[in-house]
C-alpha cells in the first residue's frame, strides 16, 4: 500500500510540475489495488483457511444424524433404517429387533441398547 501512496505522490508531483510548465496530462487511471491483498484479501486466505479446515472437513461438522459426516456415512456404509417400536425396542423395517451397531456407534442386542 505504501508503494502506491508513494507512486501517487510522485504522480501528483509530476502533474504539478507539468501544470506549472503548461503541459497538463490527464492523470493515469489508478492502479488496481490487488497485489497488496492477494495473499489475504483477494484470495481470501483467512476465510479460505477456516472454510477449508473446519467447514469442509466432515469430521468437524458435528456427529449427529443430520451432520455431513453422518450423511456421508449413511451413503457409503448405511444399512436399513431402524425405528423404535411401541415396546421401546429398536427394530428393522420388517419389525425384527435389531442386533448390531448403528451409524452413531450405538450397539444394540435384540433391540436393546447395550
Amino acid at each position: 500500500m505504501r508503494k502506491y501512496i508513494m507512486t501517487g505522490l510522485i504522480v501528483a508531483a509530476c502533474n504539478s510540475i507539468a501544470a506549472f510548465a503548461g503541459t497538463v496530462q490527464p492523470p493515469p487511471p489508478p492502479p488496481p489495488v490487488i497485489s497488496p491483498n492477494i495473499g489475504s484479501g483477494a484470495f481470501g486466505t483467512d476465510n479460505f483457511t477456516l472454510n477449508s479446515n473446519t467447514g469442509d472437513n466432515p469430521g468437524a461438522t458435528g456427529r449427529g444424524p443430520g451432520s455431513l459426516g453422518y450423511s456421508l456415512a449413511r451413503i457409503f456404509f448405511g444399512g436399513p433404517d431402524l425405528h423404535f417400536n411401541a415396546d421401546g425396542l429398536l427394530v428393522d423395517p420388517s419389525g425384527k429387533p435389531f442386533t448390531g451397531t448403528t451409524l452413531t456407534g450405538q450397539v444394540f442386542q435384540d433391540g436393546k441398547k447395550q
Binding site: N57, D81, L103
Partner: peptide, 30 residues
C-alpha cells in the same frame, strides 16, 4: 435417523467438500 452400520467401519474419516467456499454444515457442541 437411526441407521444400521452394515460395514462396521468407523465413519469418522472423509475427504473434504469445498476448496474456498463455506458450506452449510458446521460444528455444533462437541
Amino acid at each position: 435417523q437411526i441407521v444400521a452400520n452394515t460395514s462396521g467401519q468407523a465413519a469418522t474419516s472423509f475427504a473434504g467438500v469445498s476448496f474456498g467456499s463455506p458450506i452449510a454444515f458446521g460444528a455444533d457442541w462437541g
